[in-house]
Nucleic acid binder design. Structure first.
Lengths: 153, 153
DNA sequence: GCCGATATTGGGATATTTTACCAATCGAAA
DNA sequence: TTTCGATTGGTAAAATATCCCAATATCGGC
C-alpha cells in the first residue's frame, strides 16, 4: 500500500470538513488541476482511506437532548460472550459508539435519547435484558464541548 | 420552526449513511420526484437540521492506532474556568470529543494518537500544561466495537 | 360536504459538476 | 543526455444539480 503524500493529506483534511467542495475548489486548495485531484480522490476511495461520505445532522434539531456514557462490566469475558454483546449493541440505533476497554470496565458506550424517559425505556427494554451483564453505570453529559469526526492528518 | 415529517426523516436517515446519493436515487427511496426532494433537502440545510457534509476517513489507514478516554477534574468549576478549559481543548486536533459531565468528574474526552509515545507527547506538551486541572485519568480502548455518526431519526 | 387560499408536487430546460480520454510534463536512473 | 514510468493538465462528453412554472394536493372556514 503506497504512502500518503502531503497532497493526499491535504485532500483528506479538506474533505473531512466539507465533502461538498467541487473538484475545482478542492484542486485549487491543494494546488493541482482538476484531473489529478480527481484521480487522487478516487484512489483514496478505492484504497478505503476515504470510507464514506455522509451528512451530519443536528442533534438538538432532532430533539435528542440526552447524551449518556455507559460503563458496562460483563459477568464473563470469553470471546463468545464479547461477540454476543457486540452483536446486540450493533443493532441498536441509540448506541452511537461502543468501545472495548482496558481497566476495570469492559465496555464504554455513548448513547443518545430524546429525554430521560426514553433513555429509561432504552435501559429497561434493551440493555438490561441482555444476559451476562454484571454491572451498568450511567454518566450523563451536560453539554457537548467539542464533537468532531475529522481525524488529525 | 416547522416539524419534520416522515419524508424529512427518511431523507435524513438516508443522507446520514450516504450523502453521495443522487437526487434521483434519494427521491426514489423516499417516494418523491426530484424537484420536491431537492427542495426539502435544501430546506433541511437552511434550517440547520443538516449541518454539514463530510468524508469519513479510516483511522487505521492514517496510522492512528490508539484511542483514549480521559476523565478530567478541574480544581475549580466556575464558568470562567470551564470556558478557559473548553477553549484550550477545542484547538487540539487530537481531541475528537469533549463532554461536560455530571457526577464525580468534570470532563470526558476522546483522544486519538498514532501510538502510546505520541499520546504521551500529547499529555506532556498539551494537556498537563493546562492550569487548573486537579486530576487526569486515562482509559484505553482495545477496539472500536461500534462507531456511528447517524443519529436515530 | 364544499370552496377558496396556501403549500407542495412534478416535469422540463438550463447551468454545474463529474468523469474519461489523451497528449504533455516531470523525475529518476543509466 | 536519453529513456522509462508515473503524474499532470486540458478538453469534451456524460451525469447531476438547480431553477422555473403549471398542476395537484391539503387544510382551513363556512
Amino acid at each position: 500500500m503506497p504512502e500518503l503524500d502531503a497532497i493526499d493529506r491535504k485532500i483528506l483534511s479538506y474533505l473531512q470538513n466539507d465533502s461538498r467542495l467541487t473538484m475545482q475548489e478542492l484542486a485549487d486548495k491543494v494546488g493541482l488541476s482538476v484531473s489529478p485531484c480527481h484521480r487522487r480522490v478516487k484512489l483514496l476511495e478505492e484504497r478505503g482511506v476515504i470510507s464514506r461520505y455522509i451528512a451530519t445532522v443536528d442533534q438538538k434539531a432532532l430533539g435528542l437532548h440526552v447524551s449518556v456514557f455507559i460503563s458496562i462490566k460483563l459477568a464473563r469475558q470469553k470471546e463468545e460472550d464479547l461477540n454476543r454483546f457486540a452483536r446486540a449493541i450493533s443493532k441498536w440505533d441509540e448506541v452511537l459508539e461502543c468501545y472495548l476497554m482496558t481497566g476495570n470496565r469492559d465496555y464504554l458506550l455513548r448513547v443518545v435519547a430524546a429525554d430521560l424517559a426514553s433513555y429509561e425505556t432504552f435501559l429497561k427494554t434493551k440493555l438490561t435484558r441482555l444476559d451476562g451483564i454484571a454491572s451498568i453505570e450511567s454518566s450523563f453529559a451536560l453539554s457537548q464541548v467539542k464533537y468532531s469526526i475529522a481525524l488529525p492528518v
